[in-house]
């Protein structure tokens, strides 16, 4: 029974970090699908979300909802600036230069955050206290519930947006075929900007809701970003349920691995999964293989 409770506990904390990976994975997929870019600075948006929320509360003494808003809006502004200043000047760039530019942006953002707010790890207070709730022999923190709720909300909202609004459909059209989309009058440039907007907002949100659980610092973005990417790869870089499922699986495996095998290798687990999938099923876990056209 003891053992069973332990497993449940690992599963719950795994699902909650997995939900975060799923959100980050979705934010990767949104930019990838509209531009073909894997944004190496994605993890930095997540970090920025957490840090901005903490700063709003500790330095500006804002109430929690306002702090969340500041974090999301602030990060989105950075995301938009990034698209304008670094991505847009590189029209027709090779994947190589896009990789290098997004890596550059990622360490620039990380460095600036470190210079402005220091290297210390900080924690955001939980949204609604930290009285644990007992469920099936395991304890759930209120913050876990917040994470599940926000993730669910985001999934439903993005589903509605991409399938039931004109703008969302236009963005999907861009991802299928940019030239065709621009021929039918969709402003591709605007869609790219929009994808950066949604993606950075989503990243920031993920960063804010995880911050009370894991603490945050200028350098947490790398790992979070990579794991989010791993989730997206598992889901085949789609913006749908595959990525969400990928994130949850990754979170649970990681949590079980850390608990049952060794916590030191926790981060390595994600990368083994990442490499395995890239080598064996680069199209993702849940998609059928297709011949690509050259």
């Amino acid at each position: 029974m003891e053992f069973f409770n332990q497993i449940t506990q690992y599963a719950i904390s795994g699902l909650s970090t997995g939900a975060i990976y799923a959100l980050i994975g979705l934010s990767f997929a949104i930019i990838f699908n509209s531009t073909g870019i894997i944004n190496f600075a994605q993890g930095e948006f997540v970090m920025l979300g957490g840090v901005l929320a903490i700063v709003s509360i500790t330095a500006l003494h804002l109430p929690m909802p306002a702090a969340v808003a500041v974090a999301v809006v602030g990060t989105t502004a950075v995301g938009l600036a990034f698209e304008r200043l670094a991505i847009r000047p590189l029209k027709n760039a090779t994947p190589l230069s896009l990789i290098i530019v997004t890596i550059g942006a990622s360490i620039l953002i990380r460095g600036l955050v470190m210079l402005i707010w220091g290297k210390d790890t900080k924690a955001l207070p939980p949204f609604s206290g930290d009285t644990p709730i007992e469920v099936a022999g395991a304890t759930i923190l209120p913050q876990h519930l917040w994470i599940f709720a926000v993730t669910l909300l985001v999934i439903v909202a993005s589903r509605l947006f991409f399938h039931h609004t004109i703008t969302g459909k236009a963005m999907r059209a861009c991802s299928f075929n940019r030239r065709a989309a621009s021929l039918v009058g969709i402003g591709v440039g605007r869609m790219v900007l929009l994808s950066f907007l949604i993606s950075s907002a989503l990243g920031a949100l993920a960063g804010v809701i995880i911050a009370p659980l894991t603490m945050t610092a200028y350098d947490v973005g790398v790992m979070l970003g990579l794991k989010g990417f791993c989730a997206a790869i598992m889901g085949g870089m789609g913006s749908g349920f595959g990525t969400v499922l990928g994130g949850l699986i990754l979170g649970v495996l990681e949590s079980l691995g850390a608990g049952l095998i060794s916590s030191g290798y926790k981060d390595a687990i994600a990368f083994f999964i990442l490499l395995l999938i890239l080598f064996v099923r680069p199209q993702g876990l849940f998609k059928k293989g297709e011949t690509d056209r050259v």
């Binding site: 190496f40 990789i99 990417f229 981060d267 083994f272 490499l275 890239l278 080598f279 680069p282």
Partner: peptide
Amino acid sequence: FPVLRLKGHYLAMATLGVGVIAHIAFNE
């Protein structure tokens, strides 16, 4: 052989993965 079958962004991520795993191994 498996790594360099990947291209562009995927290659970058895979090599990064190799790097991170090695770094963790040095620590552990």
